[in-house]
Amino acid sequence: MAIVLRVRASWEIRMAKITAGIGTSHVPAIGAAIDHKKLEQPYWQPFADGIAPAREWMAQHQPDVCIVIFNDHASSFSLELIPTFAIGVADQFAPADEGYGPREVPVVNGHPELAWHVAESLIQDDFDMTIANRLEVDHGCTVPLSILFGEPENWPCKVVPICVNVIQYPPPSGSRCYALGQAIRRAVESFEQDLNVVIFGTGGMSHQLQGERAGVINQPFDRAFLDALVDDPESVAARPHTEYLREAGSEGIELVMWLAMRGAMDKQVDEEYRFMHVPVSNTSYGLTIIKNKL
């Protein structure tokens, strides 16, 4: 009996691929403005105009999966349990009640097969992930989806949520987040399914919600951060926590999550779109879309 050896040539295997990276703030007031149809009000008009090209870009790009890197804000996690990095592997993630009822947005559908592959790969790659089979997603995840996808009946893609602790000090360093992004890329690109994957880094930009210094904004810092994030990410990754706290406000430290997105891209990238606006609530808003150079 003949044994037929089946060899799959490498060109037959279509692997998943990270095709773009998006950085965006995830301010809850944006979610409220979208949900309550306020984007046409004068306060929101510049913001609405600024995100419109990104929505058009996203409608063209049609990702199968978005990996959304965000922080939980006392919604699914609390001070009882503070994972530095967590990944959601469930079929679905319901919008969380953050204290005023859940946002009325579609449930977020997961991609358990990809998520488990990424979780296993990251842990084998020395990132000690917390694995979440149950995770409710707060504004950190749903507001970026609303910004890029608008108000669809269902989100048009699957989502792999990755949570980074940035509330309890110390959060992971910028360089650790950057390395996490590199490891996420290795994980995605070893997944044997033809998937168009977009990665989001969310939070920021400069803002401080608390204390006598509440309201602090540093637009020169934000512009320099974005410039360097695009062109010289390793210099950004080397910045210490206190530089963010001092220069970008205590909650501006969320920007380390943009480094996780950036780590998943090539060193050389093209920035396809950028929009910045002050104020959005008590924050400086930023949005960038980057792609690897061809």
Binding site: P170, Q210, G211, H241, L245, R246, S250
Partner: peptide, 13 residues
Amino acid sequence: DYDDIPGTYIMDG
């Protein structure tokens, strides 16, 4: 080093 930042309460241990 962050103790020197004014009007800011860092959520450390």
